[in-house]
Design a protein around this nucleic acid. Structure first.
Length: 420
RNA sequence: GGUGGAGUCGCCUAGUGGCCGAGGGCGCACGCCUCGAAAGCGUGUGAGGGGGCAACCCCUCCGUGGGUUCAAAUCCCACCUCCACCGCCA
């Protein structure tokens, strides 16, 4: 969400953002509604003031005067009710549109309608070369008895999987390693609810835009979150934090659920695109300073890169285009990891700065040293998301005899084993 | 799941229809006092929206949403959350 005052003063910037992000939002309608709304607000305020003085007169009046006042009030009351209804209507429509206002993307973002316009900033590491025919992760996992697909689908439908044996231990190792690394960087581990209410989904910007991507449990008015970010922002929604508490750094862990409606019948095989997965998420809540959040963005990105380097994986860092970054984002960098079976890079991490767009929705503020209340900046990036990252580890570190070399950083979590 | 109780300005609390335009205490800030501090005394101390060039003014908010009334923190209804006890349960 943007500041109404900003929209009023910079309508063109908002229209440009709508255009480069490929959105459908009538900014002029929004401006008109905003104007109407303020006019109505003024009229209601005036009427309300009259009503208050009315009630006061009434309290002091004798019975005869009261009878008169009652008659006068009745006419006036209709008017007030009518104004209130009008205000409620425009207010409702206005907030609907406000929830659709995009963040203004940073000037360095490539302009383009989708990921085809993304720009690769750097490639780190080299894809492995095999002197044997490598298996894809699905074949390898099945060969080693590390996953159940057919049986899992009996239980949970398409895209379902069950990890088995050493692959479970590897998943745990990857998560433990990521959490430990983040703890050394003063990120507090938080295990958050994945089952969430509507408010935090609106607060983070997942709703109303991505409704079809989210599992809903209507009996209980709950949803399954697609990322820990939902709960992490939600934890502080509505609060006014003391600036001394910032920056807040969380390593959020949670199961993540995605309906993958937009990707129906893509990547249905294996562990690349699943409905339920596990993620360690990096999250930062900091003061509303562009330089400050830019520094955190760089650090979140660097940490993710460090993780991939530690895991011995080859990756590329991408500057995401305006049309790919999503409504709320100021800047987004994806990290794509090399998958031998695909012969290309696939997204494993996504690093985003939202400026105060998310904080405005979640009403998440802080009091700065001068006592001024401001909306905070929020940022997030994947640390590790499995099983997609496990698939990368299997494929990149496989040996000729169907084993997988364990990256050194994971060995302490696997009883020192070099191979699984 | 059942029964009972509760949710007020950072914290504690007063407040059963008009004097609440929300009182008090704690905390905090500033001032006085002091060599300095503590104590004491005094003053101030929520958020959001709107109007005006401005000093300033107005409106909304007492968990949330409805309702009753000329008038609601206060009465009614629903929901949310918390507490206690009972039942069930990984």
């Amino acid at each position: 969400m943007l500041d109404k005052r900003f929209i009023r003063e910079n309508p063109q910037a908002v229209k440009d953002a709508v255009a480069v992000k490929g959105l459908d939002l009538d900014v002029d309608e929004l401006l008109q509604l905003d104007q109407d709304n303020r006019k109505l607000q003024f009229e209601v305020d005036e009427a309300q003031a009259r009503r208050k003085s009315f009630a006061k007169q009434f309290a002091k009046a004798d019975e005869a005067r009261r009878a008169e006042l009652r008659v006068e009030h009745e006419a006036f009351d209709h008017q007030l009710k009518d104004l209130r209804e009008q205000l409620a209507r425009t207010g409702e429509r206005l907030s609907e549109l406000m929830l659709l206002t995009p963040n203004i993307p940073w000037s360095g973002a490539p302009v383009g309608p989708d990921e085809a316009a993304n720009v690769v900033l750097r490639t780190v590491g080299t894809p492995p070369e095999f002197d044997f025919t490598p298996l894809d992760h699905t074949e390898l996992a099945e060969k080693r008895g590390w996953a159940e697909f057919a049986r899992a689908r009996k239980v949970a439908g398409e895209r379902a999987y069950a990890l088995v044996g050493d692959l479970v231990m590897l998943e745990r190792a990857v998560h433990s390693y990521a959490l430990d690394l983040l703890r050394t960087r003063e990120f507090t581990p938080v295990a958050v609810p994945a089952l969430v209410r509507e408010e935090p989904l609106i607060g983070t910007g997942m709703l109303p835009k991505a409704r079809e991507e989210i599992y809903a449990i209507p009996e209980d008015d709950l949803y399954l979150a697609g990322t820990a970010e939902v709960a992490l922002v939600g934890l502080h929604a509505g609060e006014i934090l003391d600036a001394a508490r910032l920056p807040i750094r969380y390593a959020g862990i949670s199961p993540c659920f995605r309906r993958e409606i937009g990707s129906a019948s893509r990547d249905v095989r294996g562990l690349l695109r699943v409905h339920q997965f596990e993620k360690v998420e990096q999250f930062v809540l900091c003061v509303a300073d562009e330089a400050e959040s830019a520094r955190w963005h760089a650090e979140l990105l660097a940490t993710a890169e460090r993780i991939l380097t530690d895991l011995g994986l080859c990756y590329e860092v991408v500057e995401c285009a305006t049309g790919d970054m999503g409504v709320g984002k100021f800047r987004m960098n994806d990290i794509n990891t090399w998958f031998p079976s695909l012969g290309r890079f696939r997204e494993t991490h996504s690093c985003s700065t939202l400026h105060d767009w998310q904080a405005r929705r979640a009403n998440l503020r802080y009091r700065d040293s001068g006592g001024t209340i401001r909306f905070a900046h929020t940022l997030n990036n994947t640390a590790v998301a499995t099983p997609r990252l496990l698939a990368a580890l299997l494929e990149n570190h496989q040996t000729a005899d169907g084993a997988v070399r364990v990256p050194e950083v994971l060995r302490p979590y696997l009883g020192g084993r070099e191979l699984i």
